[in-house]
Design a protein around this nucleic acid. Structure first.
Lengths: 337, 337
DNA sequence: CATACTCGTGGAATCGATTCCATGGAATCG
DNA sequence: CGATTCCATGGAATCGATTCCACGAGTATG
């Protein structure tokens, strides 16, 4: 099937390509008659401008790239939705790249995005080598979201990884817990590092137990959350409370508790990360450390638009908030029962 | 920052644009020296071919469009992931469009995808008017997934909406339930219609109660699942079992049960749709009607590739399977307790 | 009435990569 | 050794939309 080009429209309207183009792109120097004829012809023929040809001439593609570790992670799913909707409101399409927590796939997608000449990239970066450095050197506007690379100065939107965890530990110690197990994220990510640091600081501040045994290093995937829960619950002197550094690991850990018949909220206190729908369905619903994902996505897009416009916006932090629900009971109560 | 073009590479390598292009696209008629020089120059300069220019000349863009109702729905999130990974294995990028269960946004995305000259589209369609008909008339290869439009003959991958529901109803009646409430999907979608029909057939076949009251018409969103649960549980003669037609409505309904202190698996039997991680975390885990989402995504891509290659693959149905878990107890047991 | 201006318009150049076609040198054949 | 084939190569055309430039018609100003 032959595609309709602007030349076809011009001929049908009895004008030149130049005039047709001017009418269709809203250039002011056009006569009412020409405008009418061209618009009629374009509508009748069902003309759709070829975006390739257009963005070859202009340098703009009206497309941004979004590079995420995994869309199936509810956190990134929500983030993707927020970014996409916001970008749309600016007239930009979003090209998703799913790195699958895998540096090679990330490299591939960076490659494609650069080839597609996206106008900007929003990324939750993994590692700091490979094509990532090429992306940064290429001059394409970049904003980091969720994660940051210390070595690289790029505007970013990141969660506050301190307040929520401090509040959670304070909350747990206030309820009598002294042995708080922590399922940490990978130390190769800023989020993983900062959250672990905050956990350690909070333990020190509250005087809770600081055994190295209470820390399990996971990788932000469900399976490692499960492994972490098993390891920590199998300790000779197991924790009475668990804290997990992201939603997927929380899911894995909760699964293990169910498997073993450990009643969360009765036998064990549990604090998860991210305010995911599913966590409110669990009985009792989980106490979580939440961040406003929608705001993160919107802000990331706004900042990217600013960078594209030549600005250099300051980095932002999205506050973390502890939402107390039924999964974090008093420790005393447990003993008495 | 100036972009590197093939002309720069050619000059650096001391050959013409034509030769440089031949080397880079693997054309056989190139000398070893030219190949070496061009590859070295391209690597040194960090050359990335401009995809716009390339696909302006060829007609191929190596991009497919994926049009979904909502990425935040875990079902479509998983489907998006499956499609994207499979497309990647064929060397295609995936351009996501999130219609937000909204015909206007769908129209907008169809517009953009046609402008971007995607090589094909995989869609879970809404309505049958607007740009959807233009998309079909445009000659761009299209495959439908999850939903089908009766009026339009397009290869499709759809879930088997019969077996799972029949099995579920049989399972529930075998366990003594006679009043089975159904939270239906929108009747504007094939999936919604077929599942409701199967439910009715299954009731008739098993001799369970067929009050019209037992059916609530929802819209596949969480809020309507909640409303459905409230409506059905408030009946003078409420159902002892609930069946919901998709995962989001299931989430809404489970939320209402928790709110009201109705213990699923004890006070009420519940069957959800889709085998979502979160459903296994609920205590007891939910009995579900599951489809192999990964297979659906893969098959949709394979079929699209076939259509792009000039074939006309037959439509496929992905079997539905009842997975019995703790949420569907014996009715007798309930009474006795 | 002549000059200066505005305004709509069409022709032609442009963006970057690919590819057809012509060319010249090397290799192969009779 | 001359003729033919083969092959690497460069020049030029091409894809479709935009935009610079020049032109002619119409209007305003001195």
């Amino acid at each position: 099937m032959k595609q309709i080009t602007i030349k076809d429209v011009a001929e049908a309207a009895g004008v030149s390509k130049a005039t047709a183009s001017r009418v269709l792109s809203g250039h002011p120097a056009t006569s009412p008659e020409a405008r009418k004829a061209v618009e009629a012809a374009a509508g009748r023929l069902g003309f759709r401008p070829n975006a390739q040809a257009r963005s070859l001439r202009n340098t703009r593609t009206q497309t941004i790239g979004l590079l995420l570790p995994d869309v199936r992670n509810p956190f990134f799913g929500d983030l993707a939705h927020a970014v996409e909707q916001r970008a749309r409101s600016f007239g930009y399409m979003t090209l998703f790249g799913n790195a699958n927590e895998n540096v090679e796939q990330q490299d591939e997608y960076i490659d494609v995005m650069l080839s597609q000449r996206v106008d900007g990239v929003i990324a939750a970066p993994q590692g700091d080598g490979g094509n990532l450095s090429q992306l940064l050197r290429s001059g394409v506007p970049v904003v980091f979201v969720d994660r940051v690379l210390d070595s690289i100065k790029v505007p970013s939107v990141s969660p506050d990884n301190s307040t929520g965890i401090h509040d959670a530990v304070k909350h747990l110690t206030a309820r009598g817990h002294r042995r708080i197990g922590y399922i940490a994220g990978p130390q190769s990510t800023s989020t993983g590092r900062e959250r672990l640091r905050s956990y350690k600081e909070a333990l020190a501040a509250t005087g809770a137990d600081t055994d190295a045994d209470l820390i399990f290093l996971g990788d932000f995937q469900a399976a490692s959350g499960a492994e972490g829960a098993r390891t920590l619950l199998d300790l000779a002197n197991p924790p009475t409370a668990l804290l997990a550094a992201d939603s997927l690991m929380s899911i894995g850990a909760v699964g293990v508790c169910n498997e073993r018949g450990i009643a969360i909220g009765t036998d064990l206190a549990f604090v998860a990360h991210d305010d995911i729908d599913a966590f409110t369905l669990i009985n009792p619903p989980l106490t979580v450390i939440a961040h406003d994902i929608d705001a993160m996505g919107r802000l990331a897009v706004d900042m990217l638009m600013s960078v594209i416009g030549g600005g250099s916006p300051a980095s932002h932090t999205i506050p973390g908030r502890l939402i107390v629900r039924g999964s974090t009971p008093e420790f005393e109560k447990e003993r008495q029962s």
